[in-house]
Write a protein that binds this DNA or RNA. Sequence first.
DNA 1: CGTTTTCTGTGAATATTACTCACAATAAAT
DNA 2: ATTTATTGTGAGTAATATTCACAGAAAACG
Lengths: 314, 314
Amino acid sequence: MSNIHRKRHLPPLAALPAFEAAARHQSFSRAAEELHLTHGAISRAVAQIEDRLGVELFVRRNRRVWLTAAGERLLKATSAALNGLDGAVEDIHRHDGASPILTVSCEPSLAMRWLMPRLGRFREANPDLNIDLRLAGGPVDLLADGCDVAIRRADYGISEQYITTRLWAEHAGPVCDPDCWETILAGNLSNARWLHARTRPDAWEVWKRASGNEATAASEQYFDHFFFALQAAVNRLGTAIGPLPLVYDDLKAGRLISPLGMAPTGYDYVLITLDPPDRDPRISLFFDWLMAEAGDMDGGALPGNDMVGPGKKI
Amino acid sequence: MSNIHRKRHLPPLAALPAFEAAARHQSFSRAAEELHLTHGAISRAVAQIEDRLGVELFVRRNRRVWLTAAGERLLKATSAALNGLDGAVEDIHRHDGASPILTVSCEPSLAMRWLMPRLGRFREANPDLNIDLRLAGGPVDLLADGCDVAIRRADYGISEQYITTRLWAEHAGPVCDPDCWETILAGNLSNARWLHARTRPDAWEVWKRASGNEATAASEQYFDHFFFALQAAVNRLGTAIGPLPLVYDDLKAGRLISPLGMAPTGYDYVLITLDPPDRDPRISLFFDWLMAEAGDMDGGALPGNDMVGPGKKI
DNA sequence: CGTTTTCTGTGAATATTACTCACAATAAAT
DNA sequence: ATTTATTGTGAGTAATATTCACAGAAAACG
């Protein structure tokens, strides 16, 4: 993405508080009271926005006004904008600019299967730093989205304006139910039903190349998302390619096994920030914790299965 | 929460584009070029914000300027605000106010265990309406958070300013591993290790009262979150109280069973909106889909187990 | 049904603010 | 030492925001 921003179309900003108050009260007069202005000022402010946008924001009928669809849309953005700015001013006055909230953008699958289950521990260790987790994939615009950091699989070109810090190299490999592997598949991958995810259709090919394995599928099945393919593997429907972080807890709990090990996929997981992570103590804290939680995942080391399961509960 | 807003502390809004451009370019002169103003105008705009906030936003040294911590914080909010407003204006011009994005705020546990696995189907059925899912619990301020709808368990007073639409009555009951129930517990709840979640410490008591069951725990264990207690149940560590939507898929897949059935907890799950759901076609679409996905969950009906799992492992 | 009340819109005057210009100050680059 | 690229600032000016006073319109009221 280029660094050149297309020209913004903004409403007259100074008129926004008047609009927001009018929308909230559904009355120009009461908005005027709240802002210690005259109703005429409110009327003109609203009219100014309407002129600029070329759209009516309010339906004026009888002695009442209410928002049009355009007005509702603008109110949503205005309200969010004003509250966001107010929060920033608050933070600046109270903490000299450091927000006690760290906004993290993370890919949904990693967030669900790896990050969220661990966040509780982070909260426990850092009760005064709240994490606001936003699920989003693909290119991220930290500033536009109001995020401090993003976690991404670096499988696309990440804008030069950001600092990317490597977290770990992704490893992936076939995973399936432990019983299934022994009894049904007899330890032979070519007996397996291969589960594919449309979001990464080449996952099996990538693994075969990286590991040098020549097996072929006994049968195949396609799912819309990794999530479903992995769920299907847990349910003994077949064997899926599991990226290590997404199946780490399943391996650890013994719900899945990785009989043939994992191989690097060639992609790194990275932390995306505006400045080097050590510049912001909150980000520094989060980054260090991430690395500690990741442990030796960078090397593709599998979690030991020896401590979990019925009869040997932790 | 009262409807009376505490007074906002806002920076001078009209000066924000100048500040944002200056911060982006790390130069007042280039910001002036971009905005077709003189560098003096930028200087004054920045100084005006600094005066109002009583904080320096830029470090001016040598021939370069860069942001202070306060400046970075304000930039984040400013950038988000301006982009949000720009997006609103775009939507207004293109779609007459209707955004092609529906922002949904949902409780994390429900989102992870029920909503997210189903969202793929929604996207498939409605490819032109994108869902932006935000995980958050407790009271919600739709406008301040920029959300269109919120899904919540109605266990607290929801502000009168919102429309709440009932989705289903929550049902909950003991859930555990199917083998465990027969072999270890011998079908008797009093033989079980009861798994508690600190987020809902009275869950077992509520269920006992609702179902008239008099059982007592053989042993007990506490977890910080429902998520962990349920995961522990899947791992055969004991029996947890599972709210139906949070264990629906586990029951359906046979990972868990609900041997004693579910009883209503007295709480409803609700959809929170600013206007009645049928006023906004996007919300209407989402609501109808939610109700269809929820199926007969309102009556506490358990998913049939008879169609899942190789060999019908139940 | 007329009168009053309660809204919002608007022309003209005014107060305020924003912007520019020209110059000053600073320090790096040459 | 001179030039160059940067930001700060006083004074004048242009632009705009706000008010005041009045107008219009429709609900509320007796």
